[in-house]
Amino acid sequence: MSQSRNDLQDRRFGATFRTDSWWTEVLPVIIVFGGFGIYATWRAFQGVSYEFGPYLSPFYSPLIDAEHHWLPAWLSPALLILGAPLGFRTTCYYYRKAYYRAFFLSPPSCAVTGVGAGKYSGERKFPFILQNLHRYFLYLAILFIIILAYDAVKAFFFADGFGVGVGSLVMTVNVVLLSCYTFSCHSLRHIIGGKLDCFSCEVAGGARHKAWKGVSILNERHMLFAWASLVSVGLTDLYIKLLCEGTITDLRLF
């Protein structure tokens, strides 16, 4: 008899009988998510190097009062609009899982005791109860997709007319990935059809069933799109930043 009963019932942080390296599951989340957070915050506050020719950084789109007519000089235009995508991702059902695990350690991994025993209230109290408003951020996110799609189209029209630069493709890929992420949203899946109990009993039920099935297929990859679009947004901005700073040049393919 090597252990006492108390070991089985241990509810202190990190208690587990798992023999694998469970912390390797959360480590990448901490690194990528944390890295993106720091980069995005820095870039948003910077207020420069966000527009190059027809390319506009997604951090700054839609661009509001770039010339600072009424916007105080110290306030970057990105800060006016970043709340929407940030709110969408913060209240996202996938990201919630990721950051509750990686940053709140609640729980850090399955069958590993988390922190805050006795004080836990989940998403029942402020501020986490606001997660219930995810669908409103979805509505904003869809608006942003329209704007970013417009930006992407615009990225094909240079001072000398239509053309294709690497930047045009970068921005197109970015908006496609963002669309995949936005249209694979759990709230959308609910609104578009999931809320029905009987598709065949409703007016336009067949169409809503199809739409729900389509979103469901995307939804299975929501995590993938969440990460892919996060990385693509960051890289798109970085690409434009480097162009602005002259570190690299944009290759015109056409």
Partner: peptide, 23 residues
């Protein structure tokens, strides 16, 4: 108390019937 659930998905991970409990 469904609000207590913070959708950290361990239920889905352990389900032997592959029910997508969370999603």
């Amino acid at each position: 108390g469904i609000g207590f659930c913070n959708i950290t998905k361990c239920c889905t991970e352990v389900c032997p019937e592959d029910i997508h409990i969370t999603d």
